[in-house]
């Protein structure tokens, strides 16, 4: 008889989680960041509800500073899945022209953290799927699969509900006029980065080509290798982007996302490099390093996903 592999067990668990949310919440949404984890999460959602399309929309909290290739993928993925795509731009960030070059950490806070809260409140979503994994970062390792946020979207790590077996308590305080409790749900909690890559390969999931190495225009800033993705990138006088063979291990706002020089042009080569490499995935991101080891935990208490 068929013995389930670890990927099959992970898949079954993620699908079970998504169905629980759809069965027990009133207005779920899937946060879609266009990265590889989002791609896997979306694929699992299609599996969970086949032959129906997933019964919830995709929400992209955009900063207007993502890689162009990500915007292309976003449209295609929603179309292929037959799902509604909602894109949220924080109007305040837009008005004040918040950008990663002039505003540093404020950029992420206003566009993403505040933008996410606005979008969830605006549409009245009571549950939001996110693609975070427990292996990413120390404080994520202790977060529940169903993570409750108060009306201000804050996370209280000391007041988490015990999660036993595969029974999830989805009950929450009712929404009042100004928002009630909501749930962030992480169906990929038990996946590792290697699991994600293997699943992408095994299932032939479409991902943004930036994950594969290619010649791209780059400049160096503060030790990070950045890609010049459009004309908004401020170059110093006389500075010219240099073509390098690079790929990205993680995708975010292009001026904040460091590339690695790489020869890995195929998925299995990417995995090979990942397994032989010696730095962790989030290292290319500035966000975790704030305020020592507790950076992410603090951000989450403030409402970051």
């Amino acid at each position: 008889m068929h013995r389930l592999t670890h990927l099959e067990r992970l898949e079954a668990e993620s699908i079970h989680i998504m169905r629980e949310v759809v069965a027990e919440t009133t207005r779920p949404v899937m946060l879609y960041s266009v990265g590889k984890d989002s791609a896997v999460m979306l694929h699992l959602a299609r599996k969970a509800f086949h032959p129906a399309p997933p019964p919830f929309p995709l929400l992209h909290v955009d900063t207007t500073w993502k890689f162009r290739a990500m915007y292309d993928m976003r449209e295609k993925a929603a179309r292929d899945a037959g799902m509604e795509l909602l894109v949220w731009h924080n109007p305040e960030a837009k008005e004040r022209a918040i950008n990663p070059f002039d505003h540093g950490a404020l950029h992420t806070d206003i566009w993403k953290t505040q933008g996410l809260k606005q979008a969830l409140d605006h549409y009245g979503f009571d549950a939001a799927f996110g693609g975070a994994r427990r292996d990413e970062e120390k404080s994520r390792a202790k977060e529940r699969i169903f993570s409750f946020r108060n009306a201000n979207h804050g996370w209280d790590p000391k007041n988490q509900r015990p999660e036993l077996w595969n029974i999830y308590n989805t009950r929450k305080a009712p929404r009042k006029h100004n928002g009630g409790e909501s749930i962030r749900v992480f169906p990929l909690s038990n996946w590792t980065e290697l699991d994600i890559w293997q699943y992408i390969m095994a299932e032939g999931i479409d991902i943004v080509p930036l994950y594969l190495a290619a010649e791209r225009p780059t400049v160096e800033r503060d030790g990070l290798l950045l890609m010049v993705d459009d004309e908004r990138f401020p170059l110093a006088d006389g500075e010219k982007p240099v073509m390098r063979k690079i790929r990205f291990r993680t995708l975010g706002c292009y001026p904040l996302t460091g590339a690695v020089e790489s020869e890995a042009g195929t998925l299995s080569e990417v995995v090979q490099e990942m397994l032989l490499t010696s730095t962790s995935e989030r290292q290319g991101r500035a966000i975790d390093k704030d305020e020592g080891g507790a950076g992410m935990e603090k951000k989450k208490q403030e409402g970051y996903f």
Binding site: T5, L7, L10, S268, E269, V271, Q272
Partner: peptide, 17 residues
């Protein structure tokens, strides 16, 4: 991993949990 990544992946693909 270094010499035959595909063989490694094949092996990892069929692991139990």
């Amino acid at each position: 991993i270094a010499e035959d990544i595909d063989a490694y992946l094949e092996q990892h693909q069929n692991k139990g949990l």
